[in-house]
Amino acid sequence: MTRQRKWSNDVTQNSDALDLEKDIFASDSPEAIAQSLKRSVEQSHRRKAEPFRSAMSMLTFYVNRAGRNLSQRRRKILEAAKTRLRAAFGRPQPK
C-alpha cells in the first residue's frame, strides 16, 4: 500500500520560500536546525518575506502541522531552535 503524501509535507519540501536541507527538522541539535534555516533563507531568491520571517515561519509551520504527533522531546528541540534562530538573526527573545 502506498502512503499518501500530505499537502503540508509538499509545502515543506517544495515551498517557494526556501529550499530546506533534507531531514533538517529531524536533527537533535537546535543549533543545527537554526543554522540550516538561516543558510537556506539567505541563499533563497524565491522568498517573499525578510529572511528571519521566512525562516521562523517555516519552523513554526512545521511545529504546527506536526501537532500532537510531536513527542515532548522533539517539541522541546524545535522550540529551542526558535530561540537559536532569533539569536542567529540578532532578534530579541520574547518576554
Score class of each variant (00 low, 15 high):
11 V>K: 08
38 K>W: 06
69 N>M: 09
23 D>M: 08
91 R>E: 08
89 F>G: 05
69 N>R: 12
95 K>W: 10
41 V>Q: 00
63 V>T: 03
4 Q>D: 09
95 K>Q: 13
78 L>M: 10
82 K>M: 06
54 S>G: 12
33 I>F: 03
11 V>N: 03
91 R>L: 04
4 Q>I: 14
22 K>F: 02
2 T>A: 09
9 N>W: 10
8 S>A: 14
71 S>T: 15
28 D>N: 15
61 F>P: 01
25 F>G: 01
20 L>S: 01
62 Y>F: 13
7 W>G: 03
28 D>L: 10
80 A>W: 00
67 G>D: 05
52 F>C: 05
34 A>D: 04
13 Q>K: 13
93 Q>L: 06
73 R>Y: 06
79 E>N: 12
57 S>R: 06
59 L>A: 03
94 P>M: 01
52 F>A: 07
12 T>R: 10
87 A>R: 14
74 R>L: 02
72 Q>A: 13
13 Q>S: 14
84 R>I: 02
95 K>R: 12
10 D>Y: 13
82 K>P: 02
73 R>G: 03
77 I>W: 05
81 A>I: 06
18 L>M: 15
26 A>Q: 13
48 K>G: 07
75 R>Q: 12
51 P>Y: 03
63 V>W: 02
56 M>Y: 04
9 N>T: 11
71 S>C: 08
94 P>T: 06
51 P>H: 09
69 N>T: 08
